[in-house]
Each structure stands twice: as C-alpha cells, then as structure tokens.
Amino acid sequence: MIFSVYIINKAGGLIYQKDFNEGLAKLTSNEYLVLAGTFHSVHAITSKISPVRNVTSTGLEVLEADTFKLCCYQTLTGTKFLIIADPNHPNIDNVLHRAYDIYSDYVMKNPFYAPEMPIRSELFDLNLAKLIKSVGG
C-alpha cells in the first residue's frame, strides 16, 4: 500500500504532495512545507557524511520505521521524489521511476508549467493516480 507521494524541488521546496489512502492524519499546509524542507536538509547532510572516501554519496534513499517506509529518488537535476508506503511494499524503486516518467511527460512537457513551482497539472494527477492504483494503491 502506498500512502503518499511528495515531490521536492532542488531548493528544498515542496512542489507536490498527495495522499493516496484514507485515514492518514492531515497536516497543515505549512507543516508539509516544513517536512519537505527538513527532509531536504537531512538528505544534504547524509550525502556529505558517507564514510567511504572519494565517493560521492547519493544521500538518504530509504528510511524504515515500524509503520511506514520512506523511499527517496533524486533525479539528475536535483528534484526529489518521495514515496511513503507500507513497510512490506515490495518494489517502491520501480514506482518511483515510473512516477518520474509521468512527471517528465506531463509536467515538464506542459507549456503552462513554470519550473520549480508547485505542480498543478490535471494530466499529471490523473496519470499518477492511475500508476498508484496499478501497483495496488
């Protein structure tokens, strides 16, 4: 089960957030922004403290907790895709990559989208919902 999807731009601003299952505690819109900003900073720190020398770390990729698992995929341009899911969900990486596909199609090719700004695109919503449904909500 997938709980929610977040997209964070390269400056750490939250540009997309959507919950896909009922019964999740809602936060205020400000708290979502703080959450995204905090994750962005933690991600930046984790990519600096890699114990292996001369290797650039990609930073935090998975965070596992008792009740959820958070997966992060950072694209080459620094946009981060976050999925919060059930801890036993089998293949979140695949879902992340497909979400990135949908983003590059329906957000980046949309002439009415200003880069780094919040995403308001009907087709993106539609196709993302379809993807999440196809992998079992």
């Binding site: 199609d105 329906y106 949309n110 002439p111 308001r120 695109s121 009907e122 087709l123």
Partner: peptide, 9 residues
C-alpha cells in the same frame, strides 16, 4: 497529449 490547460485559460 501532454498539455494540461490551467483553469484560468
């Protein structure tokens, strides 16, 4: 195919 027209347009 990839275009979502915003509400104000």
């Amino acid at each position: 195919k990839f275009i979502s027209v915003p509400k104000d347009l």
